[in-house]
C-alpha cells in the first residue's frame, strides 16, 4: 500500500479549481470577441496553437516528472496561463512565437519549480517576458486594427501569415502599439496631447482606439469576476489605484511629457493584468493587506517602466518583480492572531 500524501484543501476532484478556471475563461470572452472584431482572426489561431502546445507540454512534463496525468491535466491552469499569454502577443506573429512562449511559460515557469502551487512567478508573464527579451522585433510590431487599415484579412490569409509568413503588404498591416508610439513621440519632443491625436491613437469607435476597446472588454469581464467573487477586490483596486494616482500626479506636474490617466488605463495590458493576471493566487501575496501592497506595487512599477524603462509596456516585468517580493510582503502582513502581540 502506498501512502498518498496530499495537502489541504483535500478537495477530491479539483472541481473548485476547475470551476474558477472556467469562470475566468468565460470572463475573457468579451475581450476575445472585441479582439476578433478589431484585429482579425489572428487571436483564434494563436489560441489554438497555444492550447495545443500546452496539452503537449503538460503531457510530456508530467510523464518526465513521474506525476499522474489526470488531476494535473484537467485543472485548466495551463489553459489560463496560455490564454493570458495569447492576449499579450501580436495577433499575427509567426506560429513559433506563441509555441515557444507557451512552452517556456509552462516548463520554466511551472513544472521546473515543482508544478502548480510551487511557482513563485506568474507563468504567463514569465513566458511573455521571455518572448519580449528574445524576439523584440516580432513582439513590438502589432497588427493594425482592421478598421484603420480598411483591410479585413480573410481567415485563410491570416492563417498563411502566421504559418508561412506570407504577407503582401506588411508595412500597411503592422505598426507600433499606442504605448510604443507614445514613447517614441515623447522622445522626439512631441507633446503627449499631440501623440494622443495621431491617427492610430485617436481614431476608432467613439474616438477610442482598438487597444482601448480590448481593455474595456477586459474591464467588463473583470467586473463579472469581481461580482462572482472569483477574484479578490484588493488586486484591481490596488493596481489600478496606484496606477491612477501616479499617472495623475505626473500628468498634473507636466501634461506635455506625461500621458493622461485615461491613456495608461486603456493602453497595453492594463486591464488584462488588473483582473486576469495579477489575481493568480499562487504567485501573489496571501494576506488581505499584502494583496493590496502587492497590487499597488505592480501599478507603480508599471508606470515607472512605461515611462523610463527600455520596453514600452512594463506589465510583465512589474508583475515578475513583485512576485519576487511576495515572501517579504507576506512576512510583514501576517494578520495578528487574537490575543497575541506581534
Amino acid at each position: 500500500m502506498h501512502n498518498i500524501y496530499t495537502s489541504s484543501p483535500f478537495a477530491h476532484n479539483n472541481s473548485s479549481v476547475q470551476k474558477v478556471m472556467l469562470q475566468v475563461q468565460l470572463a475573457a470572452l468579451p475581450a476575445l470577441v472585441v479582439h476578433l472584431l478589431l484585429f482579425g482572426y489572428g487571436i483564434v489561431i494563436q489560441w489554438f496553437l497555444a492550447v495545443a502546445t500546452a496539452l503537449l507540454v503538460e503531457y510530456v512534463m508530467l510523464k518526465l516528472r513521474g506525476r499522474p496525468l489526470l488531476p494535473n491535466m484537467t485543472d485548466f491552469s495551463a489553459l489560463i496561463t496560455v490564454t493570458g499569454l495569447v492576449f499579450c502577443i501580436p495577433p499575427e506573429s509567426p506560429w513559433w512565437v506563441v509555441v515557444l512562449g507557451s512552452a517556456f511559460a509552462l516548463i520554466f515557469g511551472k513544472h521546473l519549480y515543482g508544478g502548480l502551487g510551487y511557482n513563485p512567478f506568474n507563468p504567463a508573464m514569465l513566458g511573455y517576458a521571455f518572448l519580449l527579451l528574445s524576439f523584440p522585433a516580432q513582439m513590438t510590431q502589432w497588427t493594425l486594427p482592421t478598421e484603420l487599415t480598411g483591410l479585413h484579412r480573410p481567415f485563410w490569409d491570416t492563417f498563411q501569415v502566421i504559418f508561412f509568413g506570407l504577407s503582401t503588404e506588411p508595412e500597411i498591416y503592422t505598426g507600433a502599439t499606442p504605448l510604443s508610439l507614445m514613447r517614441s513621440g515623447l522622445h522626439e519632443g512631441v507633446s503627449a496631447v499631440n501623440v494622443m491625436m495621431s491617427p492610430i491613437l485617436g481614431s476608432g469607435w467613439f474616438g477610442l482606439n482598438a487597444w482601448a476597446w480590448v481593455n474595456i472588454a477586459f474591464f467588463i469581464g473583470g467586473l463579472y469576476l469581481l461580482l462572482t467573487r472569483t477574484i479578490r477586490w484588493q488586486y484591481p483596486v490596488g493596481f489600478l489605484g496606484a496606477l491612477i494616482i501616479t499617472a495623475w500626479f505626473f500628468h498634473t506636474l507636466n501634461p506635455d511629457v506625461y500621458a493622461p490617466v485615461s491613456f495608461h488605463l486603456l493602453a497595453g495590458g492594463t486591464m488584462l493584468a488588473a483582473f486576469f493576471i495579477i489575481t493568480d493566487p499562487v504567485s501573489s501575496s496571501t494576506t488581505p493587506y499584502g494583496r493590496l501592497i502587492y497590487a499597488a506595487g505592480i501599478g507603480l512599477l508599471v508606470y515607472v517602466i512605461r515611462n523610463w524603462g527600455t520596453f514600452p509596456d512594463g506589465i510583465a516585468f512589474a508583475i515578475l518583480l513583485m512576485n519576487i517580493a511576495v515572501p517579504l510582503i507576506d512576512r510583514y502582513t501576517q494578520p495578528r492572531v487574537v490575543g497575541h502581540s506581534r
Partner: peptide, 10 residues
C-alpha cells in the same frame, strides 16, 4: 528603418 525601432536609426 528597423522593425520596432525608429528612434535609433533617426
Amino acid at each position: 528603418q528597423f522593425t520596432g525601432a525608429t528612434i535609433t536609426p533617426r
